[in-house]
Computed example of a mutant assay.
Amino acid sequence: MPSLPLLADFSLEMTGRDAPALADARGALPAGTRVNITFLGSEDHDTRIRAARAVVDVGLTPVAHIAARRLASEGELERLLADLQRIGASERVFVVGGDPATPAGPYASALEVIESGLLEAHGVAEAGIAGYPDGHPDIADDALRSALAEKLAAASARGLAPVVVTQFGFDADRVATWIRRTRADGVSAPIRVGVAGPTNVARLVRYARRFGIGQNAMIVRKYGFSLANLVGQAGPERFLDDLARALDHDGSARDIALHVYAFGGLADTARWAARHR
């Protein structure tokens, strides 16, 4: 089975509900592997903290998400950071605006959370920032580029090491083009490219539909299955091989790693990544 170079230092993404699966996944994950913990509106504070603690307990590195527009108050952010610090899980976080159109509290953007000063006050040393190779349905590309630059500058000004983590996508050429442009814009921070881990084909198509019919056609070509037959598993091996070749072609692969979204289950995704390392 061929190895995939981008998996040499991969990270995973899980939800709070995935915490019990860590016991099965840990044997396939190198010690210290980064595990991002999403900030879902359907999960409460205690669920997020328990998940971060579970990641620490199995010898992995937690990266808790902070969704700015889901925070009802400054006090809620302080409580989250304080509890993460208490369990040794505050060194790395990922800060994102979040889905709600109307903020629940004082933070309308990830930038405002970064500029609050609360991150470094609670032991945060690294701030993850979202990247959008496929764009954003509600934000123009120029605005995304400006926002990324502002967040990176704000993190650095606060003494926080920035890391860019992208949404998952299916078009390797588009991702490679975005990486080249981002580097040309002067962004030197590490980039973790999001990819959907191996999962049920029907489930993958459901996720893809969030991006429109064109993306459905894209994953058919890149993942090599038929929409007429949604039985079985689909993995991102073709996408990753194409991306590695595109990046190696012009030396753009510096400080690039993979961030795997565990749509097919945390343990199965971890074992897939281990096999291909």
Results as ranks from 00 to 15, higher is better:
263 F>S: 02
226 S>C: 04
208 A>S: 14
270 A>Y: 10
22 L>P: 12
52 A>M: 05
219 I>S: 08
223 Y>L: 07
76 E>S: 06
213 I>W: 13
130 A>V: 12
31 A>K: 13
68 A>F: 01
220 V>E: 12
133 P>C: 07
247 L>T: 03
241 D>T: 15
258 L>K: 14
119 L>N: 14
63 V>E: 13
247 L>C: 08
258 L>A: 15
255 D>M: 13
217 A>W: 13
94 F>V: 08
79 R>C: 05
268 D>P: 06
229 N>C: 10
227 L>G: 10
150 E>A: 09
64 A>P: 08
81 L>I: 11
3 S>A: 08
240 L>D: 13
115 E>P: 03
191 I>E: 04
152 L>V: 10
146 S>I: 11
239 F>P: 11
36 N>S: 14
74 E>W: 05
61 T>Y: 07
98 G>Q: 05
199 T>P: 08
12 L>E: 05
180 R>M: 03
262 A>W: 13
112 E>V: 00
260 V>H: 13
34 R>W: 07
196 A>T: 12
67 A>N: 04
43 E>Q: 14
271 R>A: 10
159 G>Y: 03
272 W>Q: 07
259 H>Q: 05
104 A>F: 01
109 S>R: 09
173 D>S: 07
39 F>K: 00
66 I>Q: 01
79 R>F: 00
12 L>V: 07
19 A>R: 08
57 D>K: 06
37 I>T: 00
265 G>L: 14
249 H>P: 00
253 A>C: 09
206 R>L: 06
43 E>C: 01
180 R>D: 09
268 D>A: 13
106 P>I: 09
266 L>E: 09
249 H>L: 05
246 A>Y: 02
219 I>C: 10
13 E>S: 01
165 V>Y: 06
48 R>V: 05
180 R>A: 05
53 R>T: 04
87 I>Q: 10
212 G>R: 12
54 A>E: 13
246 A>G: 00
153 A>P: 04
94 F>S: 01
130 A>G: 07
148 L>M: 15
237 E>C: 14
133 P>L: 09
25 A>Q: 12
137 P>S: 00
192 R>D: 02
160 L>G: 04
214 G>N: 15
203 R>P: 02
144 L>C: 02
209 R>T: 13
